[in-house]
Each structure stands twice: as structure tokens, then as C-alpha cells.
Design a protein around this nucleic acid. Structure first.
Length: 643
DNA sequence: ATGTGGGTTGGCTTT
DNA sequence: AAAAGCCAACCCACA
């Protein structure tokens, strides 16, 4: 037997942009490598296929820069090597060129990541490269949670806690390495394979030329972290900054405040608080792995234990700080089992079917949503756009949506408020539309958590008390009587009396003028003469709340889930009578709630983006919804006419 | 089996 | 001023 060659290791950073508490990195170092290449591959899935706004891009680049600096501090010859090619095409060439013996990375149970990693592992096997995968992204391995939950997705906290108990203790954090091996030669003599940019879902995030794949090692040939300009991205507007250094400082500051750490109760933190906000703001660091969730867990738990030992009362999961991590694990466990289906209603056995407005288009070949949607109703489309753009006429909702777009982060209860408003407690728009907006704008967007929370708030999974609706007036007033939050993010209302801050349309015209802002229109115009303009509310909330509750009640009674045969083939329409909200018109239709494509039986084809032409009633049912909508429209019109 | 109590985070009225 | 009760009623675990 020839002497075994010393390991030449590629450490592939993905969801773990840190040096502290990385089980995978520790495993790489245990190999005692002769060379270690810390690399990042530029995945076209992220560049072109996922929705990523400039703020999250910026946070990612921050994390990469900080990590690269930290690596160089441990070994001046090393850094984070960014290689601009898809991992699936890069690795076969890279393994050969750099004579790699081992590939090490952290486990990722996201639906796409599983496909990608399976492919990469096969590539490595073919190349004779040994692969080491370690779990470090969640408290528990999501697959283990599923296994200990009788093979089922984790859909409640009690399931997570029961499964976790069986799995055993949560691993203690591993110290950061104190040294790193040299990288080897970094010559790249092979040709770069550029991925096709189509479809490029992120074109709208750029105002310059996208140059991710200009060359393998970047414009200066030094594998450096790109700039926003280089990627052609629009300027980031958030002040939240990424990187492990900042994350660890933030964590230290939090646990230094022992009573805050030990008595934290999420439902009691104010969603209206800003500078400083009421929660930790560590979620984006969890997402990019610039902070380990286990590091967070144990640093907090140690404070809690000491607090209890001193005889003081500490909070408990699920409302405590560590409880927040258990929710995260719950959503990862659900996603781990359900895969792509978790992110959509269609084909999802856990997700209730509700005939929402603006449903997703389904690719019947794959059963997956395409990213486009059916504009079944022009009013709902306008509700959706006004919600997204922060001009609903409800200051609480608009302030949150503007904060979200500007800063990429809003408080958890703020997310509840806008999500409830868009779906079951206001607009009756599909939760998948809202999830897409959050995916685009949140700097802490975590697919599993985002999807799970949207299902929760839309009462399609995890939660079902749909009659508990968040009021855009009463709810914020509970936290912020003065309306400071609204004044900060909706500055046109800054001078309004607190009596009207959440319902400015009720202020007398003379007062509106005295306060420098008149309430009229739909929010497209921001000024009129000498006055600023803030829109009228886009509907009567109490009326719309009732419409939604009745719609949900009816859909619950019908009792379909995303994998029901009737949902898959479109015959669900037969089960929804006049009382239903949503695009239920007619008894026949294509799968899910999608639009007809190839049916030749006289159905009209409907464009996905253009406002729909209201269909004339052909079937015996399906008109009540339009009637409800009509009633609502008339109601708003009448109100407009009066003032 | 049918009932009961709990479910991270509702709103409104009464006590 | 805080807390309890009602609203109209969901699912689920457990007895």
C-alpha cells in the first residue's frame, strides 16, 4: 500500500459564514489537511432564480467580507476564495486542478439545496473525493426531528419538544479555530462555464450590468468579495450590517443584560419599537450563519440557568429567547419532510386549501409553482400592489411595509399584522404572494421560517383561529398610543394628532390641512398643491374582515388540503358554492387555482399579469363572490363620494 | 367515546 | 387600570 496522501481539503461555505461553532469546519480541521481551501461558489440559483433584494445582497457581501478578513487573520496566506461558477459545473474541474481529496460542508435541508448537494456528492464520488457533511444550522438535525416525530413533518411546538427530548442534548458550541492551514496553489487553468441568466428573476434588483460571472476569480483575479456595483445591484438602503464580528458583539451585548435575556417574552415585545427595536435583530445572522444558533442557545441558556439559580423567575419556551429557536427548528423540520411542496399549497398535504385571490400558476409537469400568478380579480390585484408599496391607507400597515422595504427587517408582530392583513384578515390574497414579497425584501429571509409563518398567519397550517384578526387600528394602539412608529415611517402623517394617527381619514379636513397632509386618493400622488397627500383606506376594514372570516369558515368546512385530488385536478370548484371568496366561478377548471392554458372547450385564456376581464356567469354557481366584492366596492365608492 | 383544555402574540365590553 | 368574560368556534392532544 502506498502511503496515504495528506488530505487536500475544500471547505465549502454556504449557510455558515462564521468561524465560531462550526461543526463542519471543525471536522475539516480534524483531517489535519496539508492544504485547506475556504471557498464560496457563486450559485446561479441565488443570483438569478431566488428573489433577493439589494439589502439582503449587501448583508451577504458583509458576511463574506468579514469572514474573509477573519480567515486572513488566522493565516495571512488564506482568505475566502469566491469562485464564480455554479458548484455543479465547477467542482469536477476544481477537484482535478487542485488535487482535492476531501470536500466538507454544512448540511442544508432546503429543498433546492438538497438537490444541489446530492448532485455535488455524486460528482465528488465520481472524482474519488471524500465528502464530509455536518449539521450545524439548527439546534437539531431537521431529518432527526422528522424521524423522531414518527416520520412526519413537525407541525407544532409540542412535537418539536417531544422529538428533541428523544434526540438528546443540544450540542455545546465549538470554539473557533486558532489557526488554519495554508491554501494550495490557486491557479485555475480551466474554462469558466457561464450559467444562462434566464429566467432572471432578479433583473428588477439591478440598475447596472450584472457581472457575477465575468471571470472565475473576479475582475482582479483575486477571488475577492464583489461590490454591489460589480453585481449591478441597486443601492442597499438598510443600515443593518452583516458579519460574524458584528453578530458576536450583538450577542454579547444582549446576554450582558441578564434580565432582558432571562425574562424575554416574545408576545410582550413591542412591534412599534425602533431605535432600539424590542427584539435581538440576530435573525439575519442566523440566516447567513454569521451567528451559530447553538452558540446563541447556550450563551442564553447559561444566563437563564444562573438567573433561576439566583431564585429569580425566567421565561420559558415557547415565548423565551431559546423558544424562538425551537420555532425555527419546527419550520426546518416541516420543510425537511415536505421539500418543495412546503413552499406552496398545491400538492402540500399539510396546507389547507383556500380559494384565495391571486393564486399561483402551477407547472403541471412538475406540480410546482412557476413564480407567476393568476390575476383573477382586479380589485385584489390593486389591494396587493397597494399593500406591497405601503399605500393601503392604513398607517400601521403602510409604516410596516415601508420599514420592510427600506430596512429589510420588521418586528415579528409587525409581520403578523401585515400578513394577516394581506390574507385572512383583509385582502383575501394568497399567502404565496406575501411570502414572495418577504423573500425579496427581508434581510433575514429564511425559506422555511418565512413559508411556515405565512401559512401560520393565513391559517392554512400551524394555526387555525381565523376569527382572531389583527386590527390595523387597535393592535398598534396597544403598543404605541402616540404613534411614534407611524410618524417615523409615514412622515406625511407626522403632525397628525395621536387621536387620528391610525385612522387619519377620520380627521376633519380643516385639521388635515392644518397638519400639512390631506387624506385622499390611492397613494400614487404624494403631493397636491401645498399639501402632502396620504391615501384613503382602500377598504372598510370591518366589512372586509367579515368577508374574510366567512370565506375561511366556508373553506374550512369544505376541508380540502393541497394534496387533495380535487385540488390537484381543479374539481374543487364544484365544492365551493356562492358563499366562497376567491376565484371559484364555474365548476370546471385546470389544476389548483391556476389559469387555463390548453383547454379547448371554450374557456378563455387569461393573462397572468393583465387585469382580468370579469367573466360572465356561465355556471349555476359562482356569482356570490363577485357580489360580495361588488358590495364592498360600492361601499368604498359611496364613502369616497360622501367626503 | 365525546368532552375538555390549551394553543407564543385578537378585540371589545364589563368588572 | 388590570383582569376576566364574551365573541363564535378553529385544531389537536389527551383523558
Amino acid at each position: 500500500m502506498p502511503p496515504k496522501a495528506k488530505p487536500r481539503v475544500v471547505y465549502w461555505f454556504r449557510t455558515d459564514l462564521r468561524l465560531h461553532d462550526s461543526p463542519a469546519l471543525a471536522a475539516a480541521l480534524e483531517l489535519k489537511p496539508s492544504v485547506l481551501y475556504p471557498i464560496w461558489t457563486w450559485d446561479p440559483h441565488y443570483v438569478y432564480r431566488a428573489r433577493v433584494g439589494p439589502n439582503r445582497w449587501k448583508f451577504l457581501l458583509d458576511c463574506q467580507s468579514d469572514l474573509s478578513t477573519s480567515i486572513t487573520e488566522l493565516n495571512p496566506k488564506s482568505k475566502l476564495f469566491l469562485i464564480r461558477e455554479a458548484p455543479q459545473t465547477l467542482f469536477p474541474k476544481l477537484f482535478k486542478e487542485w488535487k482535492i481529496t476531501h470536500l466538507v460542508f454544512e448540511k442544508d435541508t432546503d429543498a433546492y439545496a438538497r438537490d444541489r448537494d446530492a448532485e455535488v456528492m455524486q460528482i465528488a464520488k465520481d472524482a474519488g473525493v471524500q465528502v464530509i457533511v455536518k449539521m450545524g444550522r439548527t439546534l437539531y438535525d431537521p431529518d432527526a426531528l422528522v424521524q423522531h416525530n414518527h416520520g412526519k413533518p413537525t407541525m407544532s411546538m409540542s412535537q418539536v419538544q417531544a422529538a428533541g427530548k428523544q434526540i438528546g442534548d443540544i450540542a455545546r458550541p465549538i470554539p473557533a479555530p486558532t489557526s488554519l492551514p495554508d491554501p494550495g496553489e490557486t491557479t485555475l487553468s480551466f474554462a469558466q462555464e457561464k450559467p444562462g441568466p434566464e429566467p432572471d428573476i432578479n433583473a428588477i434588483q439591478r440598475d447596472g450590468n450584472e457581472a457575477s460571472y465575468s471571470s472565475l476569480a473576479g475582475p482582479n483575479g483575486d477571488f475577492a468579495v464583489p461590490t454591489m456595483e460589480e453585481l449591478g445591484l441597486k443601492e442597499a438602503t438598510t443600515l443593518h450590517r452583516g458579519g460574524e464580528t458584528i453578530a458576536l458583539d450583538m450577542l454579547s451585548a444582549i446576554i450582558k443584560n441578564e434580565s432582558y435575556t432571562a425574562t424575554f417574552e416574545k408576545p410582550k415585545t413591542a412591534p412599534t419599537a425602533f431605535s432600539p427595536q424590542a427584539t435581538t435583530l440576530l435573525s439575519p445572522h442566523m440566516h447567513f450563519g454569521s451567528l451559530s444558533c447553538r452558540e446563541f442557545y447556550w450563551r442564553v441558556q447559561d444566563v437563564v440557568d444562573a438567573y433561576k439559580k439566583a431564585g429569580k423567575h425566567a421565561s420559558e419556551p415557547p415565548t423565551s429567547l431559546t423558544g424562538q429557536l425551537l420555532f425555527r427548528d419546527m419550520y426546518f423540520g416541516a420543510q425537511a419532510k415536505l421539500g418543495y411542496a412546503f413552499g406552496q399549497t398545491y400538492g402540500n398535504p399539510q396546507c389547507r386549501f383556500i380559494p384565495w385571490h391571486l393564486p399561483s400558476e402551477i407547472d403541471t409537469a412538475t406540480g410546482l409553482i412557476t413564480g407567476r400568478y393568476l390575476t383573477d380579480n382586479a380589485t385584489a390585484e390593486s389591494y396587493f400592489l397597494r399593500w406591497k408599496e405601503g399605500r393601503t391607507g392604513f398607517p400601521w400597515i403602510d409604516a410596516l411595509m415601508r420599514q420592510l422595504r427600506l430596512e429589510g427587517w420588521i418586528h415579528h408582530l409587525g409581520r403578523h399584522a401585515v400578513a394577516s392583513f394581506l390574507t385572512r384578515g383583509g385582502c383575501y390574497v394568497d399567502w404565496e404572494r406575501g411570502a414572495e414579497v418577504f423573500e425579496e425584501w427581508l434581510i433575514d429571509h429564511e425559506a422555511a421560517c418565512n413559508i411556515g409563518n405565512w401559512q401560520w398567519l393565513s391559517c392554512t397550517a400551524f394555526f387555525s383561529q381565523f376569527y382572531r384578526v389583527y386590527s390595523p387600528v387597535a393592535f398598534p394602539a396597544k403598543w404605541d398610543k402616540e404613534g411614534a412608529f407611524v410618524r417615523r415611517y409615514v412622515p406625511e402623517l407626522a403632525r397628525f394628532d395621536k387621536k387620528y394617527i391610525y385612522e387619519p381619514w377620520k380627521a376633519p379636513i380643516a385639521d388635515q390641512k392644518a397638519w400639512g397632509c390631506v387624506i385622499r386618493g390611492d397613494g400614487v400622488k404624494s403631493e397636491e398643491g401645498e399639501y402632502r397627500v396620504y391615501p384613503k383606506p382602500m377598504f372598510d376594514f370591518a366589512t372586509q374582515r367579515e368577508v374574510c372570516i366567512q370565506g375561511l369558515k366556508n373553506a374550512y368546512k369544505v376541508g380540502l388540503h393541497g394534496n387533495d385530488a380535487k385540488v390537484l385536478d381543479g374539481t374543487w370548484r364544484k365544492l365551493f358554492d356562492d358563499e366562497a371568496e376567491g376565484p371559484t366561478e364555474g365548476n370546471d377548471g385546470p389544476p389548483g387555482a391556476m389559469v387555463e392554458h390548453e383547454d379547448a372547450d371554450g374557456h378563455e385564456e387569461v393573462e397572468h399579469v393583465a387585469p382580468p376581464t370579469p367573466k360572465k356567469g356561465k355556471g349555476k354557481t359562482g356569482h356570490k363572490r363577485e357580489k360580495i366584492q361588488g358590495t364592498l366596492d360600492r361601499l368604498v365608492t359611496r364613502k369616497k363620494a360622501k367626503t
